[in-house]
Design a binder for these strands. Structure first.
Length: 765
DNA sequence: GATGTAAATATTTAGACAGCATGTC
DNA sequence: CTAAATATTTACATC
């Protein structure tokens, strides 16, 4: 089908796509159009990665916009939200407005109401529904990207409930659900009353195979010999093989390409990158090495940690690792260098399989089992997960085909891998809505936002979910609902009242607050219990409290740390809030200690401890600090609201603890750090120079400020301007030598990087 | 006694959404 | 109820 034959899309679209080199539709796209996506028909598209899902969504959304409507694009990751926004902004020249809404990057409220296309995470949409964003009523088309995630035990129910709510509020709504290839796409289509496009068609061929011995065995029955040097590992041999040009009759028929290696732990990723760097580097030319050295320098500038150094060392040699312990800057640098074909080999944990688009000539799924605490050992990855990783092979328009390989160490394993992953039918997707944590959260939200006002209406609302469509065990749902309603009532989140014959459910004020704050009710109960009797809680106590909440993911206690933190608990006994579980309650006590470890990390951060000391002390990456700090900030904000709601007298203490994590400063710097452009480092220097508050900064001697900020005029000017100084101008001001910072931190480095390190990398968001 | 290497033993283990109020060089 | 790769320590040989 030609683009010009697609009905109901804007007139300018065929021309625009033509200029992009798109003339005709891929078969699944054509099928979607025939099913009526551009005419408001709902659709479930279960098709492989990179087979043109985005265009299907685009056609649907633009046709809705053309009819004067509004479209919402739901993504699972914040990183994807910005990627999609950038992609849709190409249509702004035709008057299509695009907006984004996620937790940290928000263009909220009124402003979104004017946009034609809005990109948001599923949690954000859920939150908007709860808080009754008026523009939701104007939606005509909702795209749900990566719908197979309804299978996810923690985040799946949110997507499921959100879709159900949007549909029940707006019956004519068009839903376009995009999914990886799954086993039960038909079931999803039935649930959403949608047409179905279920196809395994791909624009570029994907050859799946298994490596065994010295050969690659492919799914088309062919084999390829691999030249192995010495006793090198299979992954090394594959990476080198991928890198070399394929030469036939003295002519290069195919240029060398890059490899993406998936492993099962961060440490493995780093170790593999270190080893493979030595395989890649001999194959690089001078230009490439120079460009890589530049990237390595940028990486070192991001933060002064071991992770940063190790990553830069690998990148210098053309390899890299990628996992969630990296700071967002690190991740982006690695992704960009890999896309630019500068870095030839990236060793990654699953972050890269689900995240932004980073295709590669070859993909190696090195580890197909992963440790799982509750399963008590190594568990095989799901078919879907492995397929998602494999799907990263082959760059559209650049490679003739992609190759994805698993590694076998025995003949039996070779057979098993073919059986389990290469030939395997995709797994079906199953709703996890009946899990208790999901239920207590969504039941409260459903009652609080007025979707249901009784047990009956609640159950009938739940009837519109995928869970109801899938289960034949009717009693289970009712049982969980009753349990969770009892829990919510016990904790004063909902109330039951009699209205004639029927029992009515209403959310209490507290319940409304909890739902609005987007807290797990159990987190709210924990927090309230902890702060209720704490007149003057310490920062550490509050950090521990929010770290114990189910909304904070746990750090892991390493060997010897059990004793260490038991001692810490003893030392700070009086500060810790709530009741301490008995030491004999094995797992509860361990969780409590793990939360204490998290609390200490936050406390260190809020005591101006250096980033590299924290990463070292707690065995975490820079990205983990960011994550913890972020979550703590949110939960303390929630705690502040809850304390206000309950009329507790400790609101101020909570706010201060929040500001301290937020800025990473001690008590005395909060006021200074509140000034824009002043982070933990600058605030400390100003303080040392005798400027101890915002007021003092406003009226400060300019030469003192300039010296404290290490003679950087531009910085000093902006800082003074934001502090409200009457005349921030720095011309002819000379730094006061008495006010210069005494710390001998590297003045040797380039001024650029010194300046970047000056403001902590966690400062801006 | 310093150094190097192999073998035994110990340790560790993926990912990531959200409130609110305002605006980064 | 299930593992495996890497890190660390120890044992031992060599200079």
């Amino acid at each position: 089908m030609e683009v010009s034959d697609v009905p109901a899309v804007p007139e300018w679209l065929p021309g625009h796509l033509d200029a992009d080199g798109v003339e005709s539709l891929y078969p699944p796209q054509a099928a979607a159009v025939e099913a009526g996506v551009t005419e408001g028909e709902s659709l479930v598209a279960s098709i492989p990665t990179a087979s043109g899902k985005t265009l299907i969504a685009t056609l649907a959304m633009l046709s809705a916009v053309k009819r004067g409507g509004k479209a919402l694009y739901i993504v699972p990751l914040r990183a994807l939200a910005s990627e999609k926004k950038a992609e849709f902004e190409q249509f702004e020249q035709y008057g299509v407005d695009v907006g984004v809404s996620t937790g940290n990057y928000d263009s909220d409220g009124e402003w979104l109401a004017k946009k034609d296309i809005i990109v948001a995470t599923s949690e954000k949409v859920d939150s908007l529904v709860r808080n009754g964003a008026p523009w939701l009523a104007q939606l005509d088309c909702v795209v749900a990207d990566e719908v197979h995630l309804v299978d996810d035990p923690t985040r799946g129910p949110t997507l499921e409930v959100t879709l159900a709510k949007l549909r029940s509020r707006n019956p004519g709504l068009q839903i376009v659900a995009l999914s990886a290839t799954i086993g039960n796409a038909g079931e999803l289509a039935d649930w959403l009353d949608a047409e179905l496009v279920d196809s395994s068609w791909r624009p570029i061929d994907l050859r799946k195979g298994v490596h065994f011995g010295q050969a690659l065995h492919f799914d088309d029955g062919t084999q390829e010999q691999l030249s192995v040097q010495g006793n090198e590992k299979p992954t090394a041999a594959i990476v080198r093989d991928t890198l070399r040009d394929t030469v036939e009759d003295g002519e290069t028929v195919e240029e060398g390409g890059s490899t993406l290696v998936f492993v099962n732990s961060r440490r493995n990723a780093e170790a593999a990158a270190r080893r493979l760097a030595n395989v890649v580097s001999p194959e690089l030319d001078g230009d490439e090495l120079a460009a890589l050295a530049d990237v390595a320098d940028e990486i070192r500038d991001v933060s002064d940690t071991e992770t940063s150094d190790d990553l830069a060392d690998a990148v210098e040699k053309g390899a890299a690792f990628h996992h969630a312990g990296l700071s967002p800057d690190h991740r982006e640098l690695v992704e960009a260098a890999f896309r630019d074909r500068l870095v030839k080999c990236v060793c990654a944990t699953p972050t890269l399989a689900a995240g932004v688009n980073t295709p590669s000539r070859r993909v190696v799924v090195r580890d197909w089992r992963r440790y799982s605490g509750d399963a008590g050992g190594m568990q095989p990855l799901s078919v879907l997960e492995v397929h998602q990783m494999m799907g990263r092979a082959g760059r559209p328009g650049m490679d003739p085909y992609g190759e994805a390989l698993l590694l076998a160490s025995s003949h039996d394993e070779l057979d098993e891998l073919f059986e389990r992953y290469v030939w395997a039918d995709p797994d079906p997707v199953e709703s996890k809505l009946a899990a208790e944590p999901a239920m207590r959260t969504h039941l409260l939200a459903t009652v609080a936002s007025g979707f249901a006002d009784s047990r009956e209406t609640l159950l009938s609302f739940l009837d519109g979910t995928l869970y109801a469509a899938q289960t034949d065990e009717q009693g289970r749902l009712e049982r969980v609902v009753d349990d969770m309603l009892a829990y919510l009532e016990r904790n004063d989140f909902i109330e039951r009242s009699r209205d004639g014959d029927t029992e009515r459910l209403t959310a209490t004020n507290l319940g409304h607050t909890v739902s609005r704050l987007y807290l797990d009710p159990m987190s709210a109960a924990t927090i309230i219990d902890g702060i209720a009797d704490a007149d003057d809680p310490s920062a550490l106590g509050l950090y521990h409290l929010v770290s114990r909440t189910p909304d904070m993911y746990q750090l892991y206690l390493r060997s010897g740390e059990r004793e260490q933190y038991t001692q810490v608990a003893y030392d700070h006994e009086t500060e810790l809030l709530g009741t301490q579980p008995s030491e004999f309650e094995e797992s509860r006590f361990e969780d409590w200690l793990a939360a204490l470890k998290t609390a200490k990390l936050l406390d260190d951060w809020a005591s101006e401890t250096d980033e590299d000391r924290i990463t070292d002390r707690y065995g975490v990456g820079p990205g983990d600090i960011r994550g913890k700090v972020d979550t703590a900030e949110w939960l303390l904000g929630a705690a502040e609201s809850l304390a206000g709601e309950r009329g507790f007298g400790n609101v101020q203490a909570i706010r201060e603890a929040k500001k301290r994590v937020q800025y990473g400063v001690r008590q005395e710097l909060i006021d200074l750090a509140d000034v824009r452009n002043v982070g933990r480092k600058r605030a400390r220097r100003l303080y040392e120079a005798g400027i101890e508050s915002r007021d003092q900064l406003r009226n400060a001697d300019k030469s003192v400020v300039l010296a404290a900020l290490r003679g950087r005029e531009r910085t000093a000017e902006t800082v003074l301007e934001h502090a409200g100084h009457p005349n921030p101008e720095m011309t002819d001001v000379t730094p006061d030598p008495d006010a210069e910072p005494v710390v001998a931190t590297d003045t040797s480095g380039s001024s650029e990087s010194a300046e970047e390190n000056d403001q902590s990398s966690l400062g801006d968001f």
